[in-house]
Amino acid sequence: MLEIKCPYCGKRSQNEFAYGGDATVKRPNLGDEVSTKEWDNFVYFRDNPRGKHTEYWHHVAGCRQWFKASRDTATHEIFNTASLEEEL
């Protein structure tokens, strides 16, 4: 069982959370000249690291806030969590 520290509610069990994927993926800015290749890379291509992974989680069965977490994909250790505005 993962224990995830919601930045708003504190430590809760994994059951209360939903995963939101890689948080380093950046949508190209509105109005920018974007090549189709850049769009494809944004939509489909991922770094998929073994080790430290920055990702979104949603406290869906709690305060319903989205936040970021830094977690190890090899050990499942969660290093820290932060609200979307904060630096991890």
Binding site: M1, L2, S13, Q14, N15, A18, Y19, D22, N48, R50, H53, E55, R71, T73, A74, T75, H76
Partner: peptide, 13 residues
């Protein structure tokens, strides 16, 4: 399990 993982093991939930 629903999160990126290379661990070859999951969780009980």
């Amino acid at each position: 399990d629903g999160y990126n993982s290379y661990a070859q093991r999951g969780n009980l939930p």
